[in-house]
Computed example of a mutant assay.
Amino acid sequence: MDCRNQRAKVRTEKIKKNGGSHTSAEWKLLLARSPTCAVCGRLWSEVPKRPDPRYKHTWTKGHKIPIHHGGSDDISNIQVECYECNFKKNAGKLSITKTALHNKISTSTTENIMATSQERFSKKFSFVLHNETEVFPVQMKRRDTGSIAFRISPGGTGGNTLEASEEVDEETMVRKVLNEGYAVRCKSLDGNTNGLYKHGHRSVREVRRNVT
């Protein structure tokens, strides 16, 4: 059995162990309600076509809490992600898993070593919306350069487009958003809510600082 088949077998066993399931109808409904990637926020038309022409869609099925971290396969743990974010999220684990299989290292050890470099949220502050949802500033990835940064804008025409915004580091983002009234792209930790928010925005109830 090659490494690819072994990984598929391990994943199937993990899904069964973690529990949860969803129907094709539930997935199709979620897909219909998801015009953008839950991770990077790009429209599907903004995501480059997949290198393999056999795959016609730029979206993929992703798990908010990854299967290898104990996440279930229930529809509540499913989100629609572009293939680039999905593949990058799993790239570290797959490479480690491949090495582990060749060296006969246990799956549990492999999972514990997995890198956590995909964390893009800032915990310096958060916005609490009127519906009690808490959203955090999140870094955006540029399609043309691959750079990752917080995208802020003074608001008004253009919103959070590249032309009307700045790409900055975390320290600059915090200063400009909290002290200068800039807006920043935010997302809830479960990935269900994302958008451009700032202090005083009509949907923002309060700002929580120094979130830990």
Rank of each mutant, 00 (worst) to 15 (best):
M1T: 00
C3M: 09
N5D: 12
R7K: 10
E13T: 07
K16E: 13
K17I: 12
N18G: 01
H22W: 13
T23I: 08
T23W: 06
S24M: 04
S24A: 14
A25I: 06
A25C: 02
E26L: 09
W27Y: 13
K28L: 10
L29R: 13
L30P: 11
R33V: 08
R33Q: 15
P35S: 15
T36S: 15
C37I: 07
V39T: 07
C40Q: 10
L43T: 08
S45A: 13
S45H: 14
E46T: 08
E46W: 09
V47A: 07
V47F: 08
D52T: 05
D52H: 04
P53R: 06
K56R: 12
I65V: 15
H68E: 05
H69Q: 14
H69S: 13
H69Y: 13
G70M: 06
G71A: 07
D73I: 00
D73H: 09
D73L: 01
D74N: 13
C82M: 03
Y83W: 15
E84D: 07
E84V: 12
N86A: 06
K93S: 04
L94C: 06
S95W: 11
I96H: 09
T99W: 14
T99P: 00
N103P: 01
K104Y: 02
I105E: 03
T107F: 06
S108C: 06
T110Y: 05
N112F: 08
M114S: 03
A115G: 13
T116P: 04
S117Q: 12
Q118R: 04
R120V: 09
S122N: 04
K123H: 12
K123F: 14
S126P: 01
F127A: 02
H130G: 10
H130D: 14
N131M: 04
E132A: 11
E132F: 12
E134W: 03
F136Y: 15
P137T: 04
V138E: 04
V138P: 00
V138F: 02
Q139R: 15
K141P: 00
K141G: 00
R142P: 05
D144Q: 06
I148H: 03
I148A: 05
R151S: 03
I152K: 01
G155C: 06
G155A: 09
G156Y: 04
T157V: 06
N160I: 15
L162R: 14
L162S: 15
E163Q: 13
S165M: 11
E166C: 04
E166P: 02
V168Q: 01
E170H: 01
M173V: 12
V174K: 10
K176L: 08
V177N: 08
N179K: 03
G181M: 07
G181C: 02
Y182Q: 02
A183H: 13
A183I: 09
V184R: 09
R185E: 05
C186R: 02
K187G: 11
D190N: 15
G191L: 03
G191V: 01
N192H: 07
L196P: 01
L196S: 01
Y197H: 12
Y197K: 04
K198L: 02
H199R: 02
G200F: 10
H201P: 05
R202M: 11
R205D: 10
V207Q: 00
R208L: 00
N210D: 15
T212N: 14
